[in-house]
Simulated assay, not measured.
Amino acid sequence: MKEIRDKARQLMKGYCRVCPVCDGRACAGEVPGMGGLGTGNAFRNNLSALAAVRLNMRLVHGVSAPDTRTTLLGLDLDMPVLAAPIGGVSFNMGGGVSEEDYIDAIVRGCNERGLVGCTGDGVPPFIHESGFAAITAAGGRGIPFVKPWDGDELDQKLDKALATGCKVLGMDVDAAGLITLRKMGRPVAPKTAEELAAIVTKVHGAGARFILKGIMCADDALRAAEVGVDAIVVSNHGGRVLDHTPGTAEVLPAIADAVKGRLAVLVDGGVRDGVDVFKMLALGADAVMIGRPFSIAAVGGLAEGVASYVDTLKAQLVQAMILTGSADVAGISRAALYGKV
Rank of each mutant, 00 (worst) to 15 (best):
Arg141His: 06
Ala287Cys: 11
Gly185Cys: 06
Glu129Tyr: 07
Leu281Arg: 02
Arg209Glu: 14
Arg141Pro: 06
Val123Leu: 15
His61Gln: 04
Leu50Trp: 08
His61Tyr: 03
Leu162His: 00
Ala65Phe: 03
Ala320Cys: 13
Gly122Trp: 13
Thr119Cys: 15
Val18Asp: 00
Val173Lys: 00
Val107Pro: 12
Leu162Thr: 00
Pro125Ala: 14
Gly140Ile: 10
Thr71Ile: 08
His128Pro: 00
Lys260Val: 07
Pro190Cys: 07
Ala133Thr: 03
Glu100Trp: 01
Leu75Trp: 09
Lys160Gly: 01
Phe91Cys: 11
Ala84Tyr: 06
Pro253Ala: 05
Gly170Glu: 12
Gly331Met: 08
Ser48Lys: 06
Arg262Met: 12
Pro190His: 02
Gly33Glu: 10
Ala83Ser: 15
Lys191Asp: 10
Ala28Phe: 02
Gly170Gln: 03
Asn41Pro: 07
Ile255His: 01
Arg5Gln: 07
Arg113Glu: 15
Gly74Tyr: 11
Asp220Phe: 12
Lys2Gly: 00
Ala175Cys: 12
Asp152Ala: 13
Thr70Phe: 07
Lys167Val: 02
Gln10Trp: 00
Ala137Asp: 10
Cys22Ile: 05
Thr248Met: 13
Glu112Val: 03
Asp150Trp: 00
Ala264Tyr: 09
Asn46Arg: 02
Met171Ile: 14
Ala137Asn: 07
Gly96Pro: 06
Ala176Val: 03
Met57Arg: 05
Asp286Gln: 11
Glu3Lys: 04
Asn56Tyr: 01
Ser90Leu: 15
Ala282Tyr: 04
Lys213Trp: 13
Val275Met: 13
Gly170Tyr: 09
Val251Phe: 08
His128Met: 14
Thr192Val: 08
Thr180Met: 14
Thr71Leu: 06
His128Phe: 15
Lys13Pro: 00
Glu100Val: 10
Pro293Ala: 10
Lys7Gln: 03
Ile179Gly: 01
Thr164Gln: 13
Phe126Tyr: 15
Glu226Ala: 15
Asn41Met: 12
Pro144Asp: 05
Gly177Ser: 04
Gln316Tyr: 05
Pro124His: 04
Glu226Phe: 03
Asp230Lys: 10
Gln156Glu: 13
Leu281Gln: 05
Thr324Ile: 08
Val277Lys: 04
Met280Trp: 03
Ala327Thr: 04
Val168Met: 13
Met57Asp: 02
Ala330Phe: 07
Pro293Gly: 08
Ala49Asp: 08
Ser308Glu: 14
Lys279Gln: 04
Ala256Glu: 06
Gly109Glu: 11
Gln10Ser: 11
Cys27Asn: 04
Val234Arg: 02
Ala51Met: 04
Pro253Gly: 05
Ile232Ala: 10
Ala28Val: 01
His204Glu: 03
Glu99His: 11
Val107Trp: 14
Leu323Arg: 01
Val299Ile: 14
Ala42Thr: 15
Leu317Arg: 04
Gly205Trp: 12
Thr245Cys: 15
Gly165Thr: 06
Gly40Arg: 00
Ala218Glu: 15
Val265Gln: 05
Thr119Lys: 09
Phe126Arg: 02
Phe91Glu: 11
Asp155His: 11
Val299Leu: 08
His237Arg: 06
Asn111Thr: 11
Pro144Thr: 04
Val116Gln: 11
Asp328Phe: 09
Arg5Lys: 08
Asp273Thr: 05
Leu75Gly: 01
